[in-house]
Amino acid sequence: MVPLSWYIILSAVVFSIGVVGFFTRRNLIMIFMSIELMLNSVNISLVAYSHYLQSMRGQVLVFFVIAVAAAEAAIGLAIIIAYYRNNPTIKVDEINLLKG
């Protein structure tokens, strides 16, 4: 039997890798992929809790998280395309139109 804490530790580690990617990468697409990674790590912990607590709630939540992630990816990538049309760059430190 695998202890529950192993799953939660795995989830925390993958989430932190996503955080590192989010804070360090310069490419907007890679930042988006780090966000997807963080969502997935949370899904792992939700499914693990659902299994160990013998409840269906976690799996239902994961279903909604996946639906929201799909919506978020569609909207976010549309924003990237809309921005790229005006300023052909997706490096986050060069996206500073609102900077005073």
Binding site: A12, V13, F15, S16, V19, R26, D93
Partner: peptide, 23 residues
């Protein structure tokens, strides 16, 4: 071009501290 931001060490440090804390 460079693939990481200027303050990437700070970002990585935040991630590592977060990982240690949560784990």
């Amino acid at each position: 071009v460079r693939k990481v931001q200027k303050h990437w060490v700070l970002g990585a440090a935040i991630g590592v501290i977060f990982a240690l804390f949560v784990v």
